[in-house]
Computed example of a mutant assay.
Amino acid sequence: MNNSTGNQGGDCWIAVTDQASRRILVFDSERKDWNSAEALKWSWSPSALNGFSDGPKGWGLPSDVKLRRNTAHGGESMIVCDSYGLAAIVPYPAGNARQWSQTIPGNLHAVELLPDGNIAIAASTGGWVRLYASSQGPDAEKHSHYDLPGAHGVLWDPQENLLWTIGDDWLVPLNVCGTASDPELAEDSDRKIRLPSRWGHDLYPVYGDADKLWVTTNSAVYQYSKSANTFLTNYAGADEINRMHVKGIGNQLSGQVVQTAPREGGLYAWTTDTVRSFSPNETFSVTNGAFYKARIWCAEYQ
């Protein structure tokens, strides 16, 4: 398939974690009909053919995916996790090797790849964030651990050299200490802030504004201002974007915002067959799809 990440001169493609097909699917954001063969640009699931000798072990409910560029892993990689336990780093667009993986209990909900090649993982039921020394080889198990009840999101901030994390009640920045082979996590207690509503969920950059982060909870969608240390609901388009139970959110540099939220009658209570877009207002649907998160397919941290 095409090895690009977007349309020339336009917006990036959009990735979804599809729990119906049990695949990561990447779609052309300029194609309106996502049921068409032309709309699907890339797909992936673990198998013996692409380096995962255990096949789909720990796989079946993909919960997060991101594209990252990293010299430690030789270029662009897809990072991915699944509620059944698989977390992995895979070369993109080849998708044909296992750069790192572990199967870890705890209901994995989010992943992030740090500049040194190590992977951060948030586990909701486990109630923790861990930083694995994945830079040290495909089977590296060494990790640092931080307790965070309801951990749902992790995001690296290259501007402040912090790992932002979100749980049930708190947005917590973590300092990454130690070395690549022996990483450590330390809470930045001065900047830890209680969420304005409970059950934190997604955490993502506001592309085009390095001061802002998208933050979702069970009841609202916020933008968090790092400089003001406050949560905002007066951002552009908030009247439509701000809604309950948003599982995944992101924006294009053009201003388009995409999000996923559960749709009644879906395969699971937490999935939808549709990605909603704002500015412009559009919907992208796949028949019998069961999307958990939508991701702007961009390798940049912010």
Rank of each mutant, 00 (worst) to 15 (best):
L67W: 04
A39L: 04
S135V: 02
V258F: 04
R243F: 02
V258H: 12
I296K: 08
A110M: 06
S21M: 02
I249W: 04
G248V: 02
T216M: 04
G127Q: 09
L25E: 09
Q302D: 11
G58H: 06
E141A: 13
G74M: 00
E184M: 13
T287P: 01
Y235W: 01
T125P: 01
S77K: 04
L108F: 06
D168R: 11
I89W: 00
H245G: 02
N7G: 06
W270G: 02
G150T: 02
A140D: 03
G153M: 07
F278G: 04
G150K: 08
D202E: 12
K247Q: 15
D211G: 03
G178S: 01
Q302M: 10
D169T: 12
V258Y: 09
V26L: 04
G51A: 07
L114S: 11
A110R: 09
I14N: 10
Y235G: 10
V206F: 10
A87D: 09
A269K: 11
T17I: 11
G167I: 04
A151S: 08
A294I: 02
W100T: 10
A261L: 15
K41A: 09
I193G: 00
S225W: 02
H201V: 01
F291T: 09
S83V: 09
G9S: 06
Y207D: 08
P280Y: 08
S45V: 12
R276Q: 14
A151F: 08
E76S: 13
G95E: 07
G237F: 00
R295E: 12
G10I: 06
L203E: 04
Q136V: 01
D116E: 13
S279I: 06
N281R: 15
W170E: 09
A37G: 10
Y132C: 11
A122C: 03
D239V: 10
D54R: 14
A238K: 11
L108K: 11
D157P: 00
W199T: 10
I166L: 06
K192V: 01
W270R: 05
P93M: 07
F52R: 07
D116H: 03
P105D: 13
F231R: 12
A110H: 12
N118C: 13
S47Y: 01
I14G: 09
T216A: 03
Y224R: 03
S43N: 12
I14P: 08
N35L: 05
D168C: 05
L185I: 07
K226Q: 10
R69G: 10
Y235Q: 11
G85W: 00
E184H: 11
W297T: 06
S53L: 05
L232C: 09
A110K: 06
A97D: 08
A72H: 00
A210H: 13
R191M: 08
